[in-house]
Structures are given as structure tokens and as C-alpha cells.
Design a protein around this nucleic acid. Structure first.
Lengths: 339, 339
DNA sequence: CTGAAAGCGCTAACAC
DNA sequence: GTGTTAGCGCTTTCAG
């Protein structure tokens, strides 16, 4: 099948390529008749402009890049969905890449995206990433970047976050309000900011309610897996601290805790209340169902794209962009693992 | 920051653009010294070839499209991951789109991908899709297409599938072998091929083991949701058929069944064995944990890309492609919801 | 061994 | 209203 180019249309209509191009783009200086003819022929021939040629001229690809630590992950899958959905609405397509939480991959993938001349990049930083030169470098090159979820305050760009500290505060407060007296926190590995913020929210709540913060009640999970939740549950059982409430860093951990404690004969929530974080799908499925903090991935993904889109538009109009940090509200979802 | 083009390199080295281009590509007719000079300068300037210009010349984008019904879905997330991983290894990037199970979206999204001149497309058909003109049209245009999971035998192209019928047979056989006497099947909506195949596998197994197939034991869920599982559980309870085994179309459905039956006081697996399909993450979390059929999304995604990649290579070498259907093996994962 | 020239398909300033 | 021209950055003959 022969390629349908503007040249072909122009030739069969006996006009110039330029005129054909302008006719399709509704330039005011083209006669109605010509416009009609060109559009009609284009339609019947199913003319599709060659995006490479267009991009080469316009210096824009209408493609953005999205780098996330892990695709098979309820929260990030929601993010991807949100980004793709918002992007499609504005005529952008999305290339997704997975960093596997590795700084090296992240760096390489940014290169790959740049080589494809994406118009902008959305990133949730890898756990491994502590040095931000690679991100700053692309920002300096003038490529709009928006960070979401795993962000860094040290990078000058727009960001989409939740208030982890506040959300953790609310979750812990709920445990306190519902009568828990000895509340443990199961945190993740030290590096990510979120770990620290959720821990601080927990601590804030404890102290704001006349309880004494006790380091021995804070447990650290090596990873954020179901299995790690089970492991920590054993530690909790062995610690003999009369823990009657647990705020876990994430639902997966909480689920591991819940299942293991139940197996050990602990009544949930009668003896121990558990609250997770993220509102993954599985929190509806555990028994008892898991109370948690809803972390709205879809909204965050959409918001991240919107920020990028604005920046892209500004860039086209040569307007400078004020970087903003958008905070997406979270909310407690109380189910049956809490009193 | 000024753009680094071949022209720039050529000019600073006092050679022509053509020579610079060839030097970078190791053409045999360029002197070692020139090659070294060009490569060195390119490296220090961090020269990145402009992909639009390259694509415009070479007629290939090194980007492929991926259309799936639903991103936030354990199996499809695995597919995406597999595709992206395999593609990255071969220097391809992936644009992902979600059809929401809608034929109209699928059609539109194929257009979008074609407009971006992707080199090939990977599709899992939407539930709505019964007419395949849109797929056949792009194949006729010479764009390689590979179908996976939700496929159609009516489309002439390479495909990646599992043997649903055999897998369903094995699952049902397991129920029979473990002593179930009255086995129900909970199927999904009628349209997709998978529904029919899994149903037939169930029927085959029943009949192959001297039992009598009974239509009254087949329940249809409107959707494949957790809630629908609960709804069907009610029907099963109301039907008074002494059902002691259930093969469900998918884990989500199975989980709904399991939870609702438990709530109604039914002992799982003592009174009723349940087996699901797909081996979603959640099947490890239910209590009791769910026996299921492992449907390896990652492998399927990788296989699908590999087929596409071969076809792409063939096309470049002007070798015709023999369409093949690759079958990825499934396996039973026996957990605690079966006797 | 190197470079001039053509062209991939499209757009936009400018001329007519 | 329409066409001419130039050029986006790269690759690949082909001539030297």
C-alpha cells in the first residue's frame, strides 16, 4: 500500500504541498473550496500526517515518559492509569518504564526517553536514588519534569504528593480514639522520605494525645512485603509488650501482620487493631477487612500529568513556569481490622 | 543549551556531515583516525542523534504500542511489565493504552498509535470487540500485530495464549480427584473466548470422570468482580444443590465466593472446595489461601514482544513471517481452599 | 577515504 | 489565495 503523503494529495489536486498543508490546518488565507477539496481527499485516502516529519519541524513529539519503580503494584498501576488517561485527553501518549527501584536503571531510562525526544518526563524516584544530578541535568536541559509520590524537596520542579505525616497522624489518632493504649508502628526501610514522614505522623499523634513515645514499639521491616509483615508479627508476639494497636507503613505489611497474628490466635480487632496505608485492593479482601489510609493513585497520576502539561504549554508560549507542589488529599477508610 | 547536531560535530572537526555520520556508524570506508575523532567529540559533547530525523529517514520509530483492557489488574500489570522488559532489552520503548474493554476505544487507540508511527502493536482484545476489521486493516497495511490473552482465531497474526480448556480441565480434575462430588462452575460473561474454553474444560473433566454434566451447576457472573463473586455465592447457597466444589473463572470471583460462603458459615475447604484462575496476588492473602491456576502474565508479555520483534526483524530483512501461536504453560497452584 | 547532493514529509515565512 | 523556498537532522548513494 502506497504511502499517503501531502505531496500525493497536492499532486492529484493540482495544488502545492504548502497549500494542502495549510488547508488541512484551516489557515485563514485558503479558500473554502480548496479546504473542502483537500480535506475530502485526505479523508477518503485516509491521510495520516507523518509524525516524524511533524516532530522534526515542530520539535515536539507529543509523547511523554513515565518512570516508576514497579509496575505490578496496585498503587503504581493506578498512577499509570491516571497518567495515561489524563495524557490521552490532551493528545499525548505515554511511554512507561520501570526502574526496579534502581538508581542506575533510572538514569539509563531517562537517557532512553531523551533519545526518543519525549516532551517531558514524570518520575517517581527509585529507592536507591539519593543523588539527583541526573534529574537536575535534564531539568537544566529544559525538559519539563514532574515528580510524584517518591519525590525530593531538593529538586526544583513541580511535584505531586500526599501529606504522609498528616495521614499517619490521622491513622494513629484513630487507633488512640478507638481505645488502643499501646500502639506499635511498623515502618519500612529508612531511606525513602515517606518512611520518615509516616513515622513522624505516628510519633506526633502519640505525643499529641498524652501518650509516651516508646522506641521499642517501632518495628522495621526490611522490605514492604507480605512476608515481612509476617516476620514482624512474630517479633511483635515475642516482644510481650501488650500491643493492642498497630499502624503499618503499607497494606501489604498490614496484611502480613494481620494474617500471622490471626494464625497465632490473636483476635483482630478485639485484641489488636490494625491499620494499613494505601487502600490497595486487597484490603477489601482480608478477613477481617483492613482499615487503611486511602492513597489515591489515579488522582495523583492525573494531577502529575496536568502539571506537566501546563509546563509544556508554558514552554511553548515562552512563559516561565512557577513550580508548585500539589498535595492530593488522603482519607481514612475504616473497615473491620480496627475497633 | 545549544543542540548538538551532526553538523556541529562536522563543522568543529572540519569534515562533512556525511563523514561524521558514517564515522559514528563504523562504516568501513572511513579512516580510523576520523572515526576516533568523531566518536570522541560526540562523547564529550554528549551528542544524541535526533530520533525524529532518524525515524524520518529509516521509517522506523523503535516504539511499539500496547493496548490492554485494564491496567489496574494483576494479570495485565504483569503483561505490561513483561512487554516493557523484553522490549527494553531490544532497544524498543512501549506506549501503553487502556481500552476499558471498549471496542470504540480500541479502534481509536490503534489510530493514535498509528499516527505516532509505532513499528508494531500488541493487543489484548476488548470484551466488546466482536468485529475485527480494525485489526485486519492495520495488518493489511503492513503493521505487525501480535495478539495475546484475549485473542481471536479469526485474525491472521501471531498470538500468545494459554490453553484455557486444558487448564480448566486440570483444575476441575483436581476437585474431582480430591473427592468433590457436586462441582459447580462460575463462569463470566458469554462473549470472550476464554469463558467458553474454561467452561468446556470444566465440562470435559466432569464427563471424563464418569460424572454427569448438569447445567444447573453452571452459574454466570455478570462481571468478573469480587462483588459478583459474593452475589453468585448467594445463588449457590439458595440453590440447595449440595455443591461441594467450585471452579471459578477467575480469582476475584473465587475470592468473593470464598468470603461470602465463609460469612454464611460454610467451611472452606471442608464443606466446599474452591479453585480460582490466574494466581493473582490476592490468592495468597485470602483465608484460607486460594488454590488456583497460575496464568503467567510476565512470560506472556515477554513472549508477545518476542514474536513482534521477530516479525519486525523479518520485515526489515524482507523475509515473510510465518504466524505462530505460542502457548504458555499454566500450572495448578494448590493452596488451602481445596481439600 | 571523503564530501556533495538528494531526500525522508512537513511547516512557515515570504513572495507573488 | 496560492506557490516558492528553505530547512528541521539525518542517511545513503555516488562522484571524486
Amino acid at each position: 500500500m502506497a504511502k499517503i503523503t501531502l505531496r500525493l494529495i497536492a499532486d492529484t489536486l493540482g495544488i502545492s504541498v504548502a497549500t494542502a498543508s495549510k488547508a488541512l490546518k484551516d489557515y485563514p488565507d485558503i479558500s473554502q473550496k480548496t479546504k473542502r477539496d483537500v480535506k475530502e481527499l485526505a479523508a477518503t485516502l485516509k491521510y495520516k500526517p507523518n509524525s516524524f516529519a511533524q516532530s522534526l519541524r515542530n520539535q515536539e513529539s507529543k509523547i511523554i515518559g513515565l518512570i516508576i519503580p514497579e509496575i505490578v503494584h496496585h498503587f503504581f498501576a493506578n498512577i499509570i492509569h491516571g497518567v495515561i488517561k489524563a495524557a490521552e485527553k490532551e493528545g499525548y501518549l505515554v511511554i512507561t518504564l520501570q526502574s526496579d527501584e534502581s538508581y542506575e536503571n533510572e538514569k539509563k531510562q531517562i537517557e532512553l526517553l531523551l533519545e526518543k525526544n519525549v516532551d517531558g518526563i514524570l518520575i517517581s524516584l527509585a529507592e536507591d536514588t539519593v543523588n539527583f544530578k541526573h534529574i537536575k541535568a535534564i531539568i537544566d536541559e529544559g525538559i519539563p519534569v514532574v515528580l510524584f509520590d517518591k519525590i525530593s524537596k531538593l529538586i526544583k520542579c513541580s511535584q505531586v504528593v500526599i501529606d504522609d505525616r498528616k495521614a499517619a497522624f490521622e491513622a494513629t489518632k484513630y487507633l488512640i480514639d478507638s481505645g488502643c493504649k499501646t500502639i506499635a508502628h511498623v515502618r519500612g526501610p529508612l531511606k525513602p522520605q515517606t518512611t520518615i514522614h509516616r513515622f513522624l505522623g505516628y510519633k506526633d499523634a502519640i505525643e499529641a494525645h498524652g501518650m509516651i513515645y516508646d522506641k521499642a514499639l517501632v518495628f522495621e521491616a526490611d522490605h514492604l512485603s507480605y512476608e515481612d509483615g509476617r516476620k514482624v508479627a512474630k517479633e511483635i508476639l515475642a516482644s510481650n509488650q501488650n500491643i493492642d494497636g498497630i499502624f503499618a507503613f503499607t497494606d501489604l505489611l498490614a496484611t502480613g501482620l494481620l494474617v500471622k497474628l490471626k494464625e497465632a490466635g490473636v483476635m483482630i480487632p478485639e485484641e489488636v487493631s490494625i491499620i494499613g496505608f494505601s487502600n490497595w485492593f486487597l484490603s477489601k479482601i482480608t478477613s477481617p477487612t483492613l482499615s487503611t489510609v486511602n492513597q489515591p493513585g489515579l488522582e495523583m497520576g492525573m494531577a502529575a500529568f496536568k502539571l506537566l502539561f501546563e509546563e509544556l504549554s508554558n514552554k511553548k508560549n515562552k512563559v516561565p513556569t512557577e513550580f508548585v507542589t500539589v498535595e492530593i488529599p488522603t482519607n481514612l477508610v475504616i473497615r473491620n481490622s480496627t475497633r
